[in-house]
Amino acid sequence: MDCLFCKIVDGEIPADILYQDDRVTVFRDINPQAPFHALVIPKRHIPTINDIADEDCELVGYMLKVAGDIAKEQGFSETGYRTVFNCNTHGGQTVYHIHLHLLGGKPMGWPPYQDTLKTPV
């Protein structure tokens, strides 16, 4: 399989790994959008959130739990943080292996992408 994130999980591509266990890998995003920006990915390849099967629901919940644990460890769980799943092209997904963005360390505005409001849908 030619998946960037699968190669990170397999150790074929280096990454700044913050946490890893038998279900997930967490590493720093190479293009950070906040003072702290990491990705929580399942070790099992699931292309998009549209591909999450019933048997994956516990894994996806676990990804959120790990994100909360990392936020606490990094010291911004009380002040707040953002978690984001992007899905497909219009959702901003560029790597087709589900991944949860964990962003923290600064106040987050809403909507997150002001410039997209000017683009007709």
Rank of each mutant, 00 (worst) to 15 (best):
M63A: 01
K43V: 03
E58H: 01
G75Y: 11
F85I: 07
E73S: 14
V40Y: 06
L39P: 04
N50E: 09
S77H: 13
C87L: 05
V84Y: 10
Y81G: 09
C57K: 13
I49K: 01
Y81V: 04
R82M: 07
L64N: 11
A38R: 02
S77C: 07
L64H: 14
A71N: 10
N50L: 11
E55L: 05
G75E: 13
M63L: 07
T79C: 08
T48R: 12
H37N: 04
R44W: 00
C87K: 04
V66I: 15
Y81F: 15
D51W: 07
G80C: 06
P47H: 02
V60G: 00
V66S: 04
I49V: 15
L39V: 03
A67W: 10
A71Q: 09
F85Y: 13
E73T: 14
P42H: 00
I49Q: 01
I49P: 01
E78C: 04
A67P: 06
F36S: 13
A67V: 09
V84G: 02
P35F: 06
D51N: 14
R82I: 06
M63T: 00
N86S: 11
C87W: 08
I70F: 05
F36Y: 15
R82N: 11
D56E: 01
L39G: 01
T79A: 14
I52Y: 00
A53T: 12
